[in-house]
Computed example of a mutant assay.
Amino acid sequence: MMNKDTHVSVIIPCYNVRDYIDNCLDSLINQQCLPKEIICIDDGSTDDTLLILQKYSSKYNYIKIIQQDNQGVSSARNRGIEIATADFVLFIDSDDIINANLLHQFESSLTSDPNLEFFYFNYTFFDVSKAPQKSNKLIPLVQKKFESGIDLLTYLLERKNYSGVVWRYIFKRDLFTKNFIGKNHEDHLVSLSIISKARLSYYFNNKEAYFHRVHSSSLSNINIDSIYVHT
């Protein structure tokens, strides 16, 4: 495993995810290139989530825990952004898993193009009851370059492959100017705000970059990606 740190702050809102958070954190601490920091916002969990976070934090000094009363995922994400110190940010859902090579892939892209501001990647679903079997598979280089986020957005919309969820991209922290405000599907508004301001952007088209856990009641089962998109 590489020991090189990346330019990425990972932000994970956590609420009563004792059954999943270890899978999520394991996928991060086993990255070929480690994040600069992992910021876990414990949003008033009432199960053993905080204890699990503390176990990881005691072992890895780049894992930070922020505790707050239950205020919801929007507040947790905003708090994470306030604390983040890296140039780039990646939001992760606390029950999801990322490929062990994803941050290395991003870092390689950033080294090739230091002006990179927005790194959008593909993903796949997996069932709530089991973790994917290929989370450590080496990702081949499959990416496309765009001179602006708008160009990337146009490309994705034309191919019906745009999703406004905020865990589908790594972005330059300075692009975050629109706070989460607690409305349904607000990911889409924040994502559009970020991508519309981005300049040099990459699309990493590999479905094994990110693994999104699906619950029966998850909003991810509902096709809502086009609600805030008008073409």
Rank of each mutant, 00 (worst) to 15 (best):
49 T>E: 05
187 D>G: 07
9 S>M: 11
231 T>I: 15
13 P>K: 05
192 L>V: 09
180 F>R: 08
168 R>Q: 13
172 K>N: 07
173 R>M: 06
120 Y>C: 09
120 Y>K: 03
145 K>G: 00
124 T>C: 13
109 S>F: 05
9 S>F: 04
155 Y>W: 15
203 Y>R: 06
43 D>V: 06
113 D>G: 00
14 C>W: 00
88 F>Y: 15
114 P>W: 05
159 R>E: 13
112 S>L: 15
212 H>P: 00
148 S>G: 07
207 K>I: 12
50 L>S: 11
31 Q>Y: 05
95 D>C: 07
100 A>Y: 10
151 D>P: 01
102 L>E: 03
149 G>C: 08
52 I>V: 14
107 E>K: 11
156 L>Y: 08
11 I>F: 03
28 L>E: 04
1 M>I: 06
165 V>K: 05
37 E>S: 07
200 L>E: 02
14 C>Q: 05
161 N>L: 09
65 I>V: 15
13 P>S: 09
49 T>K: 01
120 Y>W: 15
178 K>V: 09
17 V>T: 10
214 V>S: 09
8 V>F: 05
34 L>T: 01
76 A>S: 15
69 D>A: 14
174 D>E: 13
231 T>E: 10
222 I>T: 06
125 F>S: 11
189 L>K: 10
76 A>C: 10
45 S>T: 12
69 D>M: 13
113 D>R: 13
61 N>F: 07
36 K>I: 01
46 T>W: 00
222 I>E: 01
175 L>N: 04
116 L>V: 06
124 T>P: 02
28 L>R: 04
122 N>T: 08
186 E>T: 01
139 I>Q: 09
115 N>A: 12
145 K>F: 12
31 Q>H: 08
144 K>I: 13
108 S>G: 06
77 R>T: 05
24 C>R: 01
211 F>K: 06
75 S>Q: 11
97 I>V: 15
144 K>T: 15
28 L>A: 05
192 L>Y: 04
128 V>K: 12
107 E>W: 00
126 F>S: 08
56 Y>D: 11
144 K>R: 13
197 K>E: 11
152 L>G: 04
190 V>F: 09
225 D>V: 11
68 Q>M: 15
14 C>H: 00
64 K>E: 14
7 H>E: 14
136 N>I: 06
197 K>I: 00
23 N>P: 00
99 N>Y: 08
135 S>H: 13
167 W>H: 11
34 L>E: 00
41 I>C: 05
49 T>V: 08
10 V>H: 01
91 F>P: 01
120 Y>A: 05
130 K>D: 03
82 E>K: 14
107 E>F: 01
133 Q>T: 14
151 D>L: 10
188 H>Q: 15
50 L>Y: 12
195 I>F: 11
132 P>N: 09
82 E>A: 13
38 I>G: 01
203 Y>G: 02
142 V>H: 12
96 D>R: 04
120 Y>M: 05
212 H>L: 11
80 G>N: 08
224 I>L: 13
224 I>H: 07
89 V>Q: 02
135 S>C: 10
144 K>L: 13
18 R>Y: 07
128 V>N: 10
6 T>H: 03
31 Q>W: 04
65 I>L: 08
42 D>R: 06
88 F>R: 04
113 D>W: 14
83 I>E: 12
159 R>P: 07
114 P>D: 02
52 I>Q: 03
209 A>Q: 02
227 I>A: 00
186 E>L: 03
14 C>I: 09
